[in-house]
Computed example of a mutant assay.
Amino acid sequence: MIGEEKKEMVRKYVDAYNSFNVNDMFKLLHDEILFRNISNGQVDTETKGILEFRELAEKSSRNFSSRKQTIINIATIDNQVEVQIDYEGILAVDLPNGLKSGDKLQLIGKSLFGFKEGKISLIEDYS
């Protein structure tokens, strides 16, 4: 895959994420997908394999009434795509950390996407 094909795959993934279309997200993912969420330098969530990631994605989609990732910048670095993301979401449920249904989350972050056999095999979200 060339850099532009990888970037297009990431754009399709973000579009599916924004529309809560878990099935379209998973069409783009390798069976051995590794996902990590890194917040303040610490890994707070990690899944290995498509089944673990699907469970997390479905649970996460139920937590929000709306969500949108906006790509601010996208670049190919070595075999990965790095994306600067502006994220906004509205909670649909109360969370244990004190956030309530209806609260708005906003953050700027970065995501790294790795590839294997023509599919996304790594997603690391940094915030």
Rank of each mutant, 00 (worst) to 15 (best):
E124N: 13
E55Y: 04
I120Q: 07
Q42A: 04
K7I: 08
L122A: 07
K68L: 04
V14F: 09
N97K: 04
V10H: 09
G98R: 12
M1C: 05
L112D: 04
L95Y: 00
V83T: 11
D31Q: 15
G109I: 00
D78H: 13
Q42C: 01
N97R: 01
Q69T: 01
K116P: 06
D103V: 13
L99K: 09
E117H: 11
Q106I: 02
V81Q: 11
G89Y: 02
I123G: 11
D15C: 13
V14S: 04
K116W: 10
Y126C: 02
S60Q: 09
V81Y: 11
V14M: 11
I108M: 13
Q80N: 14
G114T: 03
V43N: 02
F53W: 15
A16N: 03
M9P: 08
K100T: 10
F113S: 14
V22M: 06
Y87G: 00
Y17L: 05
F20M: 03
D103S: 03
S39N: 05
L122W: 06
Y87K: 01
K68Y: 02
D125G: 09
N40Q: 03
E5M: 12
I50Q: 11
F113P: 00
L56W: 15
G114C: 07
L99S: 12
D125Y: 11
L112V: 14
Y126L: 04
G3F: 07
A57E: 14
M1R: 08
N23L: 06
S60F: 05
I50V: 11
E52I: 12
Y87D: 02
S39W: 01
N79E: 09
T70S: 13
G89D: 02
L122T: 14
V10I: 15
Y126K: 00
E4N: 15
I108N: 14
F53M: 07
L107C: 13
D86A: 15
I71T: 01
N63D: 00
I90M: 07
K116C: 12
K100A: 10
G3C: 13
N23W: 11
M1T: 02
L56I: 03
Y126I: 01
V43F: 00
G98K: 05
K59F: 09
V14I: 14
L112C: 09
L122H: 06
D94C: 06
D94L: 10
F53S: 05
S61H: 06
G98I: 08
G118P: 02
V22T: 07
K116I: 10
N18H: 08
I33T: 14
K110N: 03
G102R: 10
D15T: 09
M9I: 05
D31M: 07
F20I: 00
S65L: 11
S19D: 02
K6C: 10
